[in-house]
C-alpha cells in the first residue's frame, strides 16, 4: 500500500477533534434537513398564532405586539430547540460509533463539544427564519445593523451554552422519551414565566421573583433592546453570566456522566 498513514501528534487536540466531529454533525444535519423543522416552521407558526390571536388582546394592535413578541419567540424557540441535542446525544451514545470514539486517542470532551458546536447551524437557522417570517408579517429592526447582529450573536451564544444543560440530561437519563419529557418540563416555565409573551408587570407578584432571575427573561430583554433600539439595561450582562454558568456547571457534569458510561 502506497500511503504512509503515520499518526503525527499535532497541537490543540481538543479543538481539532471537536471541529472534525462538528463537521460530522453538520453532514448529518445536511442529510436530514427535516430535523430542522423545530427551528424553522415552529417559530413561524408561533408568530402567526400569537400575533393574530392574542395580539389584539395583549397589545391592542397586532403590529405593536409583533414588534414586542418576535424577540420573545426567538428566545422561546431557542429554549425548546435545545431539547433536540439532548435527545440526539442520548440515542447517539448507545450506537456503536460512540464506542469507536471512545477507543480513539482523542479528548473525552471532543465528541460532546463537537456535537454542541455542530448545532450552531441550527441556531443560525432559527434566528434567520424567525426574523424572515417576522419581516413578512411587518416586523422591523430599529436598532441599526450592528445592534441587530449583536442581538443575533447573543442569541446563538446563549443557545450553545444552554445546550450543555440538554446534553447533561441526555447523558444521565436512560431513554430518549425521558430526555424529551424532562427537558420539556424544564423549558416550559422558562419560556412562559418570563417576558417572552407579556410585560412581566402584569404577572402576579409571586411569579415576578422567578421572572427576574429567569435566564430567558434576560436573553429576550437584551435581544428586544438590541432589535428595537430601546435600552437593554443589564440584560446583556445577565445573559452572558447565565451563559457562562450553564457551561461551567453542565459541561463538566455532562463529561463526568459520559465518562462513567464508558
Amino acid at each position: 500500500m502506497a500511503t504512509l498513514a503515520t499518526p503525527v501528534r499535532r497541537p490543540l487536540p481538543l479543538i481539532r477533534h471537536s471541529a472534525a466531529l462538528a463537521v460530522r454533525s453538520l453532514i448529518k444535519t445536511w442529510r436530514t434537513p427535516e430535523a430542522l423543522i423545530d427551528v424553522t416552521a415552529q417559530p413561524a407558526l408561533f408568530l402567526l398564532i400569537f400575533v393574530y390571536i392574542f395580539g389584539g388582546a395583549v397589545s391592542g394592535s397586532t403590529h405593536d405586539y409583533l414588534q414586542f413578541l418576535l424577540p420573545g419567540i426567538l428566545g422561546q424557540t431557542i429554549a425548546f430547540g435545545a431539547i433536540a441535542i439532548g435527545v440526539n446525544m442520548n440515542t447517539d451514545i448507545t450506537k456503536g460509533v460512540f464506542d469507536r470514539f471512545r477507543a480513539f486517542p482523542i479528548p473525552r470532551l471532543a465528541p460532546l463539544l463537537g456535537a454542541v458546536l455542530g448545532d450552531i447551524v441550527r441556531y443560525v437557522v432559527v434566528t434567520v427564519s424567525t426574523l424572515g417570517m417576522g419581516y413578512i408579517l411587518g416586523f422591523r429592526l430599529q436598532g441599526g445593523v450592528f445592534a441587530a447582529l449583536a442581538g443575533c450573536a447573543l442569541a446563538v451564544l446563549f443557545a450553545l451554552c444552554l445546550s450543555w444543560l440538554s446534553v447533561a440530561v441526555g447523558m444521565s437519563v436512560r431513554t430518549t422519551g425521558a430526555v424529551q419529557g424532562i427537558l420539556f418540563l424544564l423549558m416550559m416555565p422558562l419560556a412562559f414565566a418570563s417576558n417572552v409573551f407579556v410585560d412581566p408587570a402584569t404577572l402576579p407578584s409571586w411569579m415576578q421573583g422567578f421572572v427576574k432571575v429567569n435566564p430567558l427573561t434576560h436573553l429576550v430583554g437584551a435581544v428586544r433592546g438590541l432589535f428595537l433600539g430601546t435600552p437593554v439595561g443589564d440584560h446583556v450582562w445577565w445573559t452572558l453570566a447565565w451563559s457562562l454558568a450553564f457551561v461551567v456547571v453542565f459541561m463538566p457534569l455532562a463529561l463526568r456522566i459520559y465518562r462513567r458510561k464508558v
Partner: peptide, 25 residues
C-alpha cells in the same frame, strides 16, 4: 461502530482525522 448517516468514505476520513493522520493522508 460506524456512523449510519455518513457515507463509507466520510466515516473513514473522519476517523482518519481523529487519528491524527491529517486531512490529505
Amino acid at each position: 461502530s460506524v456512523d449510519e448517516d455518513l457515507t463509507g468514505r466520510q466515516n473513514l476520513i473522519l476517523f482518519g482525522i481523529l487519528l491524527d493522520l491529517g486531512r490529505a493522508a
